[in-house]
Amino acid sequence: MKTVVEAKRIKKVYGAKGNMFTALDEIDLTIVEGEFVGIMGPSGAGKSTLLNVLATIDQPTSGDIVIDGISILNMNEERLSRFRRDNLGFLFQDYNLLDTLTVKENIILPLALAKVNIKELEQRVNEIADTFGIRPILEKYPYQISGGQKQRTAASRAIISNPSLLLADEPTGALDSKSATDLLESLKGLNEQRKATVLMVTHDAFAASYCKRVLFIKDGKIFTELVKGNVSRKEFFNKVLDVLAVLGGGTNDVI
């Protein structure tokens, strides 16, 4: 099985001398192809910092990160951008759709940026729109559609270029439970049928129960890890809740 992410001793320190805050403390992380990994933890545990560092949006203070066989540290800005475009897909809590573009244009944006030819582009967009069931709204603008539709649009955009890693930051955070379930089912489908590798940061135990493996972070360190194995989603959900209860802090978010 191919390794997609290999992070070693990632450390991220904020602030200057005398007033330092360690957000990530020597974290090691390995994700192989086809995994669906969740990251959980209380507020301020360093979840988003970890995601941002892996997403190449933020630089770690020390450590080494290899994604898809390429070391992403010490890359210049232009190469990093290319790397993000070609290897990574993003899903954010607040969708991050461009309101000047139609749904279709938002989805094809990564392909347009990569200058893919128009025929392939049209074909891919239709394919993905069908997967997420947003074919009828392709010509609408983001302000004309619902939150769930927006997030599915964002998900379509994230995977249209077949990234080796899909990074999701609280993707269900702003959705109602029906839309959240739809989205999680779609992500699960992507993971199982297309072998997409997904890394999802979440607060929500229900969302985490869709993962195959969940990492718990506290105070910048990995606290524990849960692997779903062959148990049902329901059982896995209870296991996650148990860990959260031990972890503390995060429990408020569950109840």
Partner: peptide
């Protein structure tokens, strides 16, 4: 905000 999104999905500063 729009340009920030673009940066995140991999548009370089030069572009």
């Amino acid at each position: 905000g729009r340009y920030e999104i673009l940066r995140k999905i991999g548009v370089s500063k030069k572009e």
